[in-house]
């Protein structure tokens, strides 16, 4: 039990770091672009909501590991967090307003900062892949994106949007 608690304290702290960095990023962005999303009391409530929904999502994901259906066990934490947040936001508009007071692009910069650091040891692995696969990769990424975009375009057209 103690170990279990400890785990959640750790997640809580990492999430605190994450929302702290978002706030920092939004402040810096305001220095550069004073007309971007201002930091207000609502922003702080928004960040707290994000922290809170993330924790609930982690908890749900943990609990779901006991479910027998594989698709549910494999459903990513990221998905549970979005669903948790969606449910709360449908229940009260306050959460929507507060969370939207957090600048979207300011959320993305810290994430990609850590993404860049996390791959530091993988750069060496690049040598193991051939240039042929690198070319294939470009077409694979293009394929999924263009494929979806064209079908979506067609669908929206048929739906009359």
């Amino acid at each position: 039990m103690a170990a279990g608690m400890n785990k959640y304290v750790k997640y809580g702290l990492v999430l605190l770091l994450s929302i702290g960095l978002i706030l920092f990023t939004q402040e810096i962005k305001l220095l550069k672009y004073p007309e971007s999303t201002p930091v207000t009391a609502l922003t702080i409530y928004g960040l707290v909501s994000l922290w809170f929904f993330s924790m609930i999502g982690i908890f749900i994901s943990d609990q779901m590991q006991r479910v027998r259906i594989k698709v549910i066990r494999d459903f990513p934490i990221l998905g549970w967090v979005s669903i948790t947040s969606l449910v709360f936001c449908l229940l009260s508009d306050f959460f929507v307003e507060a969370i939207q007071a957090v600048d979207f692009l300011s959320i993305t910069t810290p994430i990609l900062t850590f993404a860049g650091i996390s791959v530091a040891n993988r750069l060496v692995d690049l040598r193991k892949t051939s240039w042929k696969i690198a070319i294939v990769a470009i077409f694979v990424f293009t394929g999924t994106y263009v494929g979806s975009a064209l079908l979506a375009q067609l669908g929206l057209f048929l739906a009359g949007n």
Binding site: S54, I77, V119
Partner: peptide, 20 residues
Amino acid sequence: SSKYLIFIMLPLMARYGADV
């Protein structure tokens, strides 16, 4: 960074709930 990247990403996923 690699172990907790996914957790650092969670607030973004929570933000998406508010957008949907």
